[in-house]
């Protein structure tokens, strides 16, 4: 009797020790992560605040003086406002278009048993699989021929192309998840196609739709290759501006400001929509090729 009690106690202690160890490890990982993600961002914030008349150079570990000078410069003289406007009008257009295009396709892929389904599902992933620069460079020849290069509508099409895979894959999974009985019941009650779409399909795919929209939106915001080849110099988005500050015009302070402008909305969005971003959406959309 005493021995079993002893043994039980040992198990409890063991479990407690294990839990404490896990907690310690969690804290350790959080610390590592804060350094891993926090330090790069913190350094960039510092660089963006360097006062133009007090250069930050070696061997100073920290800048001598901080000011908003670099931010004022970037907003006053660079095309950042125009780029912000382009980026944030382009993205909603592309999201909307990719939603409209993917809805029927996702419906078929998610609910119908058709020959060649696997093939179509692979085709859908092509924009992600195909190397961006190759597609951009040679699609630009096609776009040139049809007057779509250096053209806002052409850019929307290009961004739609990049958003479609996420949208279709996520929506397909959502359509798959709708129980057949619900649809059968609705049909028995005499629901027509329009009612079915409005009252069953759309509400039931909404969570997936949101996840898909977020992926398509961020894809559009950070799309570089196609925009760079097809859109610049007529249209600048934030990534193409940042590229110029990192390449030929490498100026660390300006690049820092642009990098932060590009990054902050995304991080805010990440925390705002955490719930919709459960890993299952991503793995559902990309889990198999």
């Amino acid at each position: 009797m005493a021995a079993t009690k002893q043994k039980n106690l040992w198990y409890v202690r063991q479990a407690r020790r294990k839990r404490r160890f896990t907690t310690l490890l969690t804290v350790f990982f959080i610390l590592v992560q804060v350094i891993w993600v926090g330090v790069p961002i913190f350094m960039t914030v510092l660089w963006s605040l360097v006062d133009p008349s007090h250069p930050w150079s070696f061997p100073n570990i920290l800048p001598e003086k901080l000011s908003w000078g670099q931010w004022i410069y970037v907003f006053k003289y660079t095309n950042i406002l125009r780029a912000l406007k382009t980026s944030y009008t382009l993205a909603p257009c592309a999201v909307l278009l990719s939603f409209l295009f993917s809805l029927p396709t996702a419906y078929v892929l998610g609910r119908k048993q058709i020959p060649g389904k696997k093939f179509f599902q692979t085709i859908v992933l092509l924009p992600i699989i195909m190397p961006g620069m190759v597609v951009a460079l040679f699609l630009s020849r096609v776009f040139n021929a049809f007057g779509l290069a250096q053209n806002f509508f052409g850019l929307v099409l290009a961004h739609t192309l990049m958003g479609l895979p996420y949208m279709i894959r996520v929506l397909t999974t959502s359509f798959e998840a709708i129980p057949q009985d619900v649809i059968d019941a609705a049909e028995n009650l005499g629901a027509n196609t329009f009612v079915k779409i409005k009252d069953i399909f759309l509400p039931m795919v909404r969570p997936g739709l949101l996840a898909g929209m977020i992926f398509a939106f961020t894809t559009s915001i950070e799309e570089f290759n196609l925009t760079f080849i097809i859109g610049t110099p007529t249209f600048e988005t934030i990534p193409t501006i940042l590229y110029s500050f990192l390449g030929y015009n490498f100026i660390r302070t300006n690049a820092s400001v642009v990098a932060l402008i590009m990054m902050i909305p995304n991080i805010i969005m990440l925390f705002a929509v955490e719930n919709f971003l459960k890993s299952d959406y991503l793995s559902a959309s990309l889990g198999k090729l």
Partner: peptide
């Protein structure tokens, strides 16, 4: 119904390839 999605992708990726 596949055309808007799959067709769109095939058209653009296919033509560039």
């Amino acid at each position: 119904l596949l055309i808007p999605g799959v067709g769109f992708i095939l058209l653009f990726i296919g033509s560039s390839i």
